[in-house]
Design a protein around this nucleic acid. Structure first.
Ligand SMILES: [Mn+2]
Ligand SMILES: [Mn+2]
Ligand SMILES: [Mn+2]
Ligand SMILES: [Mn+2]
Lengths: 152, 152
DNA sequence: CTCGGAATGTAGCCTCGGCTACATTCTGTG
DNA sequence: CACAGAATGTAGCCGAGGCTACATTCCGAG
């Protein structure tokens, strides 16, 4: 059995994926990323509205750790995309679409954190990492997470 | 015991985190994201070099699903940051720093995919989502993933 | 009621990461 | 060995998402 595996059809344990496959994976990651910011804003605005009553630009900015001008500009984008409404100096509110997105995003955030905790990630790392990870969790993955948590 | 829990110190199961805590979590997610692109380039270049020999801009662009001009511009950034070297028309190579980053990134990618598979995520979703998730997995989380996989 | 400080909004700048269009260089086929 | 076509590189555009500086509006203490 002096096999050297030279010219084996299987090149190695981790051969490169096909080009179109790989391009599609990278493309999905880029797409997911581009929605991340809006998701975080909508989730945060919903949290603020539920827990206190008001979602003011300064609060939003402070919680996100950005300048207030940055927050206001992004709130403008939320309005353009039909997720939020706001009259000058009156605070920000969510549309139906905004509320429904917020609900989905919040549910997913919770499942991701719980999954991380369930596999042994320390609390603060779980919360911190989840803030980025959540935006890259597809429906299929989310469903798998939920199943895993259910049978734990 | 006609307690209504009004004015209880614990407001609800999911109270908002403290402002500085939340800002730091969002900030970390933003920072992680800014490094993501370079990580993917370096990992891909390393894969191409190991598996074939050459890492040419056109190949890189095709695999990432972007225009070749975009890839060339980013390769310029890799050079500025000391991760890659390339002479005109000669293909791209990694510096020591680049190789070492690539090794870490590839190892982390593998652990993330394995973790996803281990909790029941279907293969293609695991590969696809991992491409985004990997960039938000801290060292603490990575270690927890590895421990979980070891005792499975 | 006033008025000063806080909140809000606007203007304009920057980098990153996409893109298209065009210019240049390389290279393999005839 | 020429040269057409592919690969590579350059120029310049765009939007997103940061920032600072400044203008405007609101509101509560006095
Ligand atoms: Mn998030
Ligand atoms: Mn979140
Ligand atoms: Mn990736
Ligand atoms: Mn990867």
């Amino acid at each position: 059995m002096s096999v050297l595996m030279v010219d084996s059809p299987i090149r190695s344990a981790s051969a490169l994926p096909e080009e179109p496959t790989q391009a599609s994976r990278f493309g999905k990651a880029r797409t997911a990323q581009s929605g991340a910011l809006l998701e975080d804003y909508v989730e945060l605005i919903s949290d603020l509205l539920e827990s206190g009553g008001e979602a003011r630009p300064t609060d939003i900015a402070r919680r996100l750790g950005v300048a207030h001008a940055t927050a206001i500009k992004t709130i403008g984008r939320l309005k353009r995309e039909g997720l939020a409404v706001a009259k000058p100096y009156r605070g920000v509110f969510l549309t139906e679409a905004g509320e429904s997105l917020a609900a989905r995003v919040r549910a997913r955030h919770r499942v991701v954190v719980d999954l991380l905790l369930a596999v042994g990630v320390p609390f603060e790392a779980a919360e911190s990492d989840a803030e980025g990870i959540e935006h890259h969790v597809s429906d299929a993955t989310l469903a798998a997470f939920a199943r895993f948590l259910a049978r734990s």
